[in-house]
């Protein structure tokens, strides 16, 4: 478990990037840190492998502070994947993956076996990719190598700094799915920084929402979706995401029958059971209704509220 205790960071120019952050990352969980740009999410991440030194506070891994550990040892025991991929262009794929093993002086045979194993794990054929150079690979393939490189030393902790944000949507989806299944399989503690709420909801076990260097809310994806604690969280996940989320779906109101409730509060609007998501979105988001009463054959069959609809969509997505 990684524990961040009262962590503060002020940069030389006086900006306070982090203000008394208290948060922990559970063992074996994939935690997303999310927030708008400049909220300190990357700064927080880089404290964990000490790429940035804290102004105040402490970071503990498995109960002992990392601040007086040997920095090189610490970093070799933590996998790291960065946004711009960060593969070394002058090294082959195999060499890139084996940087840490070579620093640790593994035997040649062990390194070769491990490299092949890693390439297979991220679905790249070893025979094809081993001796290629990073610039010969597509962005998605490069970032797979980046993930393989982070996993090669079998670290317990992996830090990922917006690793998929520069990829095209299709590769991004693929890599998210792969990361999720890898995580299920390997049970590493992963801290994943992103600015994409969809990504966070899709892959995270827990989400930490940051804003201006402070924690706004921590919780499981569905908890955050259902009970956004502050207006900021609401606006950060709520309207924009909800709109996008809803409009992507081609379901009708009737489809969510299982989620209907029998009573409602706030502003209600009557709609037909075959009302599409487009119209529902407009009602909830643009016109500010809290729930709709669904009518089928001139009979009310229940109420669909904004929150349950969101929850329904989120549940469906994560399945």
């Amino acid at each position: 478990m990684i524990e961040i205790k009262q962590l503060s960071k002020s940069f030389n120019d006086g900006t306070e990037a982090l203000k008394h952050i208290d948060v922990h990352f559970n063992e074996g969980e994939l935690t997303c840190i999310i927030g708008p740009s400049g909220c300190g999410k990357t700064t927080l991440l880089k404290h964990i492998n000490r790429l940035i030194a804290p102004t105040n506070g402490d970071i503990e891994i498995s109960g002992s502070s990392i601040l007086n550990q040997d920095i090189v040892e610490l970093r070799r025991s933590i996998g790291y994947v960065i946004q711009q991929i960060g593969l070394f262009p002058h090294m082959t794929i195999a060499e890139n993956i084996s940087v840490v093993p070579r620093l640790l002086n593994w035997s040649k045979q062990k390194i070769n076996d491990r490299v092949d194993e890693m390439l297979e794990m991220v679905n790249l054929e070893p025979e094809v990719f081993r001796n290629r150079y990073p610039l010969e690979l597509s962005g998605g393939q490069q970032q797979r190598v980046g993930v393989a490189r982070a996993l090669v030393g079998d670290p317990d902790i992996i830090l990922m700094d917006e690793p998929f944000s520069a990829l095209d949507p299709i590769s991004r989806e693929q890599l998210q799915d792969q990361l999720k299944s890898l995580h299920k399989q390997l049970k590493k503690t992963i801290v994943f920084v992103t600015h994409d709420m969809d990504e966070a909801l899709k892959i995270a076990d827990r989400i930490v929402i940051l804003r201006q260097g402070e924690v706004e809310q921590i919780g499981r994806p569905d908890e955050i979706l259902q009970n956004p604690e502050t207006d900021f969280v609401k606006s950060f996940i709520g309207e924009e995401r909800m709109t996008r989320f809803m409009r992507q779906s081609h379901k009708t109101a009737k489809y969510f029958e299982d989620w209907f409730v029998m009573e409602s509060h706030g502003q209600v609007k009557e709609v037909n059971a075959d009302t599409g998501m487009d119209e529902l979105t407009t009602l909830f988001v643009d016109q500010g209704y809290d729930s709709v009463e669904v009518i089928e054959n001139d009979r009310s069959i229940g109420y669909l509220t904004k929150n349950t609809l969101l929850k329904a969509l989120a549940t469906e997505r994560s399945e």
Partner: peptide, 20 residues
């Protein structure tokens, strides 16, 4: 980004210079 990746992988400053 190269420097950061190299440091984050636990290269010492000398290793980083020679290898990257």
């Amino acid at each position: 980004a190269m420097i950061e990746a190299a440091s984050a992988m636990g290269m010492t400053s000398k290793q980083r210079l020679l290898r990257v």
